[in-house]
């Protein structure tokens, strides 16, 4: 299966583990990820707060490059994915928008290809059966709170791959890795996004709430598909503990990291050492459970 691949800016910096583990999983699952040459930033949450056309044109250039090759596009970062989906929908809906976008990027773009979240590519395209059969070190007994965040499923009118409330695809992947997804209510609550940096007093309580509820529901760790969410929950967990008088110690993974681990990757080669909340004690615990 060949698909165009748009890593997005974060996967070279704050989300480097996402890139490494994605590459590992793709090779194990015979997924041919063709990284777009010369891809550019999707504009993130800044472009749509500054100029509507700019927020469409930046992602559209990447989509047009993939369309030229006749390929769908796999996007790991949930935030980028949401920007791509928005352009896709607006261009399909309105010919005028299509023309404006085409003019801005100086390329034809008709949205004949589809943006697919990497989560969807694994859960729906590659399929759970193949994932299950590639598992060599099952995550036996690992209790995982699957955290989808906002952008993988909202707003539903963009035609997402999973339902807008209580989505299931990541839970299904964790189950097929031998882990136990916990049933918890905050799968799609907002982590605070950029507000954690821009207005910490208002943003931090949001991530706090997600960590709190995950812990109450018996999770040993969280798993996500969004570099922004991961940064908020992982990097800022220490700040949350300090400022909001908590004592969380919940490792936060990308779903691809857990996939890679279960498929036999060494923690280091997929970048597990780069997390701020040290996941190694938990990872070692899984190993012990498995042999026990």
């Amino acid at each position: 299966m060949k698909i165009a691949y748009y890593p997005g800016c974060s996967l070279d910096t704050t989300g480097i583990e996402f890139r490494l583990s994605t590459a590992y999983c793709a090779s194990k699952l015979n997924l041919d990820l063709w990284e777009l040459p010369g891809w550019n930033c999707c504009g993130a949450s800044s472009a749509h707060s500054k100029d509507h056309l700019l927020s469409l044109a930046l992602p559209a250039r990447n989509l047009a490059l993939a369309e030229k090759e006749g390929l769908d596009m796999a996007v790991p970062c949930a935030a980028c994915y949401s920007r791509f989906k928005t352009v896709e929908a607006e261009v399909r809906q309105d010919e005028k928008v299509q023309q404006q976008v085409a003019h801005a990027i100086d390329m034809d773009y008709k949205a004949t290809n589809n943006t697919r979240s990497l989560l969807e590519v694994f859960a729906g395209g590659v399929g759970l059966e193949q994932i299950e059969s590639s598992v060599t070190k099952p995550l036996t007994g690992l209790k995982v709170a699957c955290y989808y965040g906002c952008y993988l499923v909202r707003p539903p009118k963009l035609g997402h791959f999973d339902r807008a409330e209580d989505p299931q695809s990541m839970d299904n992947i964790i189950s097929s890795l031998g882990g136990t997804p916990v049933d918890w209510p905050h799968k799609t609550e907002c982590c605070g996004a950029g507000m954690i940096t821009l207005s910490p007093n208002d943003g931090l309580p949001l991530s706090y709430e997600i960590l709190r509820v995950a812990e109450i529901c018996g999770a040993e760790c969280l798993v996500t598909a969004c570099p922004m969410c991961l940064m908020n929950l992982d990097l800022h967990q220490e700040t949350i503990n300090k400022k909001l008088k908590a004592n969380f110690n919940l490792p936060v993974f990308y779903f691809t990291e857990l996939m890679a681990l279960a498929m036999g990757a060494s923690p280091k080669e997929i970048g597990l050492n780069r997390h701020f909340v040290n996941p190694m004690p938990l990872v070692e615990k899984i190993g012990r459970r498995e042999t026990a």
Partner: peptide, 8 residues
């Protein structure tokens, strides 16, 4: 935060 909960 542009989380889209409202629109959803």
């Amino acid at each position: 935060a542009s989380c889209e909960t409202c629109a959803t």
